[in-house]
């Protein structure tokens, strides 16, 4: 009997130790055109979802912020402005290609002095306990192999009273929207991926991984189990995306 532990990679079951590598391949492939594809895929709405996340963060001058799976640095750019010269932002991503794109982009936009870059795994965050006032993970949690472990790791490095914000694709709240969304994700999305990045498979994975991600209520319960309090979520665009929030007690 094969008792090797497996996890999902899109709709496939893969050995646990392989998932990170497979996800890395996807993001190496799309890194250079990640922003273009995000704009195309969401019609630009991802900017509004991120904007809402910034507003919900409560981040202000002097704060320390960890932007996990920060990729091309959309959130880190805004956080770096909000925390000012006395604050600190860490843009973290497991993927060197994405981190490289993010670092170049932020440098080009004049962000320096209050930002650091870290290539690290959300499950094993290399920071001391009680370090950050706020942690965000936008469109990253579904790619993490062990989400519970990642949530516990985030809880550890948050300061007491600090908040975690998880921005992630979720479950549309209406049946009609759900059907339209399915057609779009599995037919249109890979086609656009093929056109823009010449990589339909990576975008098929993105669509599948979204379906395999826990729905709103399940993720909220996972955050509760990890030890967060006052957890809540807010649906955006009919539940296609949800922002979860939890506080470290």
């Amino acid at each position: 009997m094969n008792d090797k532990k497996t996890t999902h990679f899109g709709f496939q079951e893969v050995p646990v130790e392989e998932k990170a590598e497979r996800v890395a391949e996807v993001f190496h492939s799309v890194a250079a055109k990640y922003d273009v594809m995000n704009d195309l895929m969401s019609g630009g709405i991802h900017r509004l979802w991120k904007r809402f996340t910034i507003e919900a963060s409560g981040v202000r001058a002097g704060h320390k912020v960890l932007d996990i799976a920060g990729g091309t640095g959309d959130l880190s750019y805004q956080f770096a402005k909000l925390v000012g010269s006395n604050g600190q932002v860490v843009l973290a991503d497991i993927n060197a290609s994405m981190l490289g794109v993010g670092r170049d982009r932020l440098t080009d936009r004049g962000i320096a002095g209050n930002i650091n870059f870290a290539q690290c795994d959300a499950q094993f965050l290399p920071f001391p306990d009680n370090t950050f006032d706020c942690i965000t993970i936008a469109f990253g949690l579904r790619n993490v192999t062990d989400k519970d472990m990642a949530l516990r790791s985030m809880l550890r490095v948050l300061k007491p009273g600090g908040r975690l914000l998880v921005l992630e694709f979720s479950k549309p709240q209406s049946e009609i929207l759900s059907k339209i969304y399915d057609t779009y994700s599995f037919k249109v999305l890979p086609f656009m991926g093929k056109l823009v990045t010449n990589d339909a498979e990576s975008y098929r994975y993105l669509a599948e991984s979204i379906r395999m991600h826990p729905d709103q209520q399940t993720l909220k319960e996972m955050m509760d189990t990890a030890g967060f309090v006052r957890t809540e979520f807010h649906n955006m665009t009919g539940g296609i995306v949800a922002l979860h929030k939890g506080i470290k007690p």
Partner: peptide, 11 residues
């Protein structure tokens, strides 16, 4: 909670 009241359209 007032924090989570804004719609995508308002944003």
């Amino acid at each position: 909670m007032a924090l989570f009241m804004t719609s995508t359209l308002t944003i």
